[in-house]
Design a protein around this nucleic acid. Structure first.
Length: 703
RNA sequence: GGAGCUGUAGCUCAGCUGGUUAGAGCGUUUCAUUGACAUUGAAAAGGUCAGAGGUUCGAAUCCUCUCAGCUCCACCA
């Protein structure tokens, strides 16, 4: 054996061998099914550090594979709708182009090619990390057969009355030109002037004077003594566009303490106002266009962007004495686009919505009853909080990169025809052939929310459903995990699956924490503190990177990238290597006769106990302790004590004992550090067998 | 406004259902070393377990409050 273990080149060679031998196929075993579906990374970019945490899944798969289970780990990629289009548009921008320079088909094709170029990069990274994924079963969210299933679900929801199209206020980004779900809006505190403007005899406070052209009422609190006499009356008011009339309504929503206790109601541009308008039957008047400019109703201000218009209107109002005063120190939180950070404009738009309440209930129950278990258990709260307060889900996106919604509107009678993907020949209502397909695509989570059954079905692996473990970062518990449960339960029930244990998409949810930069700050491209996982793999070896990620971090807790920990892990590989070298060196002496002593028997007992312990911990998803106990035992028990002890008394029996024990923990360590353990196994035993498919050294009592 | 998380050695963190001298890695100090391994070995220093109170025979671990940092949810013009 070489004096030092140099992982460069070796790791990739070993991976290739494993792959060629077909060891990643679940069929290497005959045992009971065990399955994990890899959360499909976005196909638009190389992996980021969080993806390296999927090492947890590889540990589980390798562990179960060694236990003889038919362990399927299915890889895939997500088209990541808006995310990808956003990245691509950034690229276009750099070339001085925009998405509007291309027609739908061309743009789609361009993004498709872009994604296809990225995909092998991403997959190569997963391989470098040693992930034993079954590449023969890889899927993409835009594969035809997956899309077909997504269509079918959409159609089913529609037929079941769980899907509706409505013109409602949606979160709209006028910069990206699409609407979003509630999850995609972030809030930030901003200091903006609060204008106290005169409405006839009343004064009201607003941060958005430019929306006044869309006011259809003024509201006060029904209990407010100051304004009783105005309730129900119509006021004549002076505006920058001349005289106007406005109704006064009473609504509980109004806070008497805020401002003057009077609120203007702009149903088309404010979520609360929209709610008020429903209660009072107020009309909705849109004054802001989808491109962020003021509409015709704004008179001479039309065509201006919202911010310009606000400034111009305020100036004019001041000239006309329509502003009482301005509070310049007002702080409030405003909704921003999570991607471009520009203000979200609430706008009325016709969209497809899923009624979530009836769908969320079974999903809540599944976890409450324990059919689905969440690790760590505390995270259940986040899951319940989301589903218990859920609102209807807007699944339409005004982008081209995604699955186009299979809905056609009749131009004659305006009714909608929903299909499983094929264009309908005629309108089901009036038989007109004048049909036009919805331009929108699905929210990417609508398709990824169907990932478990869609992938297993299309790869003909249904016997693996429900999957054993869904492992992912806790940050997408709501976005993805909850929606997979919701849609999974719905679809299985639709297929009339009776057995409740077969309706759930997965049995266990395992959630890992985020990996932050060495200073504990979130890694992000804009901060420029992202670390490429492959850089570290090159530097420390995949084994060390893997080990450092699970060692010293409790499941679900965030961690900071730690170079000392990486160093420690690499030193550990070195230790293992040298232990192997020692054993190889002592082979000559192993021909001597002799007996075992108490120390030999003791170490065997301890190794056995370790095997049992590691098995137990892995079944509990306690990777941290499994890693720690292995490290402790191998280094500070076995190497420091036993090897020192046995050094002087090598004989046939003690040598065998040494070798046997070493092999046991080499196997136990294999899921964590697959490469070096495989390499040592080859060097020391050289049987032509492979550790990856060797038998796990502890037999669990069968339940 | 609601909910949650974190606060343990200089640094990064473990500490499972409360139980003998509170642990690891890195760092620091001392010693060893041509012998599997200096990517080493032996040893040492270093903690009022954020603070206060309570439950208990016994609490870092359970309860209450305070302080500090962070996150999520709802979004009041």
């Amino acid at each position: 054996m070489d004096k030092v273990y140099n992982q460069q080149g070796i790791e990739e060679k070993i991976y290739k061998t494993w792959e060629e031998k077909g060891f990643f196929s679940p069929e290497v075993n005959k045992g009971k099914e065990y399955s994990i579906i890899l959360p499909p990374p976005n196909a638009n970019a190389p992996l980021h550090f969080g993806h390296a945490m999927y090492v947890i899944e590889d540990i589980l798969i390798r562990f179960k594979r060694m236990q003889g289970r038919r362990a399927l780990w299915l890889p895939g990629a997500d088209h990541a709708g808006f995310e990808t289009q956003f990245v691509f548009e950034k690229k276009l921008q750099q070339d001085g182009k925009s998405r509007f320079d291309y027609d739908r088909e061309t743009l789609y094709k361009m993004i498709w090619d872009f994604v296809q170029g990225n995909r092998p990069v991403m997959e190569g990274q997963l391989k470098r990390l040693g992930f034993s994924l079954d590449w023969s079963n890889r899927k993409f969210t835009l594969d035809d057969d997956i899309v077909k299933i997504v269509y079918k679900t959409f159609k089913n929801l529609y037929d079941d009355g769980l899907l509706y199209r409505a013109k409602r206020l949606v979160n709209y980004c006028t910069f990206d030109g699409t609407s979003f779900s509630d999850l995609e809006v972030i809030y930030e505190e901003r200091q903006n002037p609060l204008y106290y403007i005169k409405y006839g005899p009343l004064v009201l406070a607003t941060t958005r004077p430019e929306t006044k052209f869309g006011d259809t009422a003024v509201a006060v609190n029904p209990k407010d003594k100051r304004y009783q006499k105005y309730i129900g009356k119509e006021l004549e008011i002076e505006t920058v566009l001349g005289k106007s009339k406005i109704k006064v309504v009473a609504d509980e929503m109004v806070d008497m303490e805020f401002g003057t206790g009077v609120v203007k109601i702009t149903p088309a541009h404010d979520f609360n106002d929209y709610e008020v308008s429903l209660r009072h039957n107020l009309p909705m008047v849109q004054v802001i266009n989808y491109d962020g400019t003021m509409g015709e109703r704004a008179g001479k201000f039309s065509g201006m962007y919202v911010r310009q218009a606000r400034k111009a209107i305020v100036e004019e109002m001041q000239e006309k004495g329509l502003i009482d005063h301005i509070d310049e120190n007002y702080k409030h939180r405003i909704g921003l686009c999570y991607k471009c950070k520009n203000p979200i404009e609430p706008l009325p738009l016709e969209q497809w919505f899923i009624k979530m309440k009836p769908l969320a209930e079974p999903a809540i129950k599944a976890v409450k009853k324990g059919a689905i278990k969440i690790y760590p258990k505390d995270m259940e709260k986040m899951y319940f909080q989301f589903l218990e307060n859920i609102k209807d889900w807007n699944i339409s996106r005004q982008i081209v990169w995604g699955i186009r919604i299979p809905a056609w509107q009749c131009k004659d009678c305006k009714s909608w025809v929903v299909t499983e993907g094929d264009a309908p020949e005629k309108c089901t209502n009036c038989s007109s052939k004048n049909l036009i397909q919805d331009e929108d695509t699905f929210d990417t989570w609508f398709s990824s929310g169907q990932w478990p059954y869609a992938t297993l079905k299309t790869t003909n692996n249904q016997e693996y459903y429900p999957t054993t473990v869904m492992e992912t970062g806790y940050d997408i518990l709501r976005w993805w995990v909850a929606r997979m449960v919701v849609l999974g339960l719905y679809v299985q029930k639709k297929l009339e699956v009776e057995n409740e244990s077969k309706q759930i998409p997965f049995q266990n949810v395992v959630l890992h924490g985020l990996v932050n930069d060495p200073l504990g700050k979130k890694m992000s491209k804009s901060k420029g503190n992202v670390v490429d996982p492959l850089e570290l793999v090159d530097q420390y070896g995949a084994d060390a990177v893997r080990f450092s990620l699970v060692y010293g971090t409790a499941l679900g807790n965030d961690q900071s990238l730690s170079y000392p920990k990486l160093d420690a892990a690499r030193k550990f590989t070195n230790k293992l290597w040298n232990m192997a070298r020692f054993i190889e060196m002592k082979r000559k002496e192993s021909k001597k006769d002799g007996d075992l002593s108490a120390g030999d028997k003791e170490v065997s007992e301890k190794t056995k106990a370790l095997a049992k312990d590691i098995t137990r911990l892995l079944n509990l998803y306690d990777f941290n302790h499994a890693a720690q106990n292995l490290y402790e035992y191998i280094w500070h028990e076995f190497a420091d004590k036993y090897i020192e002890d046995v050094k002087q008394r090598i004989n046939t029996k003690t040598y065998t004992n040494l070798l046997d024990n070493y092999l046991i923990f080499l196997k136990l360590l294999h899921p964590f550090m697959p490469f070096i353990t495989e390499e040592i196994y080859k060097k020391l035993w050289g049987t032509g067998d492979y550790l990856i498919v060797s038998k796990w050294p502890y037999e669990e009592s069968t339940k």
